[in-house]
Amino acid sequence: MIDCFSINKYQSVDENIPYIAMRLYKLIERPISVDKLFEKYSKINRIDLSLNLERLLFLAMTFLFSVGLTGLSDNLVRRIG
């Protein structure tokens, strides 16, 4: 199992949940659906949207929700604060 909260020489920074969360948070300029946010992330970072990437993105979104930086209303993700 990959430890997604620490960085070591065997793991890409793009597999680190807090780093991905930071990049996702910067992409939320206005309310956006999760699907469009993930597509935007993959397009900007030139990464194919795969099952593994979606898993990391969902973990990053869960992290953002848990620390209170994002919220969900009307099926749209938005920044809080």
Rank of each mutant, 00 (worst) to 15 (best):
L69D: 01
G81V: 10
K9I: 11
E15V: 13
L37G: 00
L37H: 02
S6L: 06
L27E: 06
L24M: 02
R30H: 09
V67M: 15
R30L: 13
A60M: 02
L69F: 05
R79Y: 08
Y10D: 08
I80A: 12
M22G: 14
S33E: 12
L69S: 04
F65S: 08
K43H: 09
A60V: 02
L51Q: 09
S42F: 11
V34D: 15
D35A: 10
R55D: 15
G81N: 15
L59Y: 10
I47L: 13
I32W: 06
K9Y: 12
I47H: 03
A60T: 10
P31G: 13
N52W: 06
L69G: 01
I32V: 13
L76T: 07
S50F: 10
E15R: 00
S73L: 11
G71I: 07
S66E: 11
D74L: 09
F65T: 01
I32C: 09
C4H: 09
I17V: 14
S12I: 07
I2G: 10
F38W: 03
T70P: 06
I2N: 14
L27V: 05
R78D: 13
R46Q: 14
R30V: 12
R55T: 10
N8W: 00
S33D: 08
R55F: 10
E29N: 04
V77W: 02
N75E: 10
V13P: 06
Y19I: 09
S12N: 14
K36Q: 15
D3S: 11
D14Q: 08
S6G: 06
V34G: 06
N52E: 13
S42C: 14
P31L: 04
R79D: 01
R78C: 11
A21I: 05
D14L: 13
E29Y: 06
I32A: 08
I28G: 05
L49Y: 06
R78W: 11
L56C: 01
E54C: 02
V67R: 14
L49A: 09
M22Y: 07
K43T: 11
R46E: 15
C4E: 13
K26P: 10
A60S: 15
E54T: 05
M1P: 09
S50E: 15
I80P: 01
L72E: 03
G71W: 00
N52Q: 04
R23M: 06
I20G: 03
N8A: 07
M22C: 13
E29P: 06
E15N: 09
L49T: 07
K43A: 11
L57Y: 02
P18H: 00
I28Q: 05
R46P: 08
F5V: 04
V77C: 04
L51D: 14
F65P: 00
L72C: 01
E15W: 01
N45T: 02
S42T: 04
D74G: 11
L57R: 01
N45L: 11
P31T: 01
K26D: 07
R46L: 13
E39D: 13
I47S: 09
D35S: 08
V34N: 13
Q11C: 15
G68N: 02
R79A: 03
Y25R: 07
N75A: 15
R23E: 13
E15H: 11
R78F: 12
K9T: 15
S66H: 12
P18D: 07
S12Q: 05
L56V: 02
T62S: 00
I20A: 01
L59N: 05
E29D: 11
I2H: 09
T70L: 06
G68L: 05
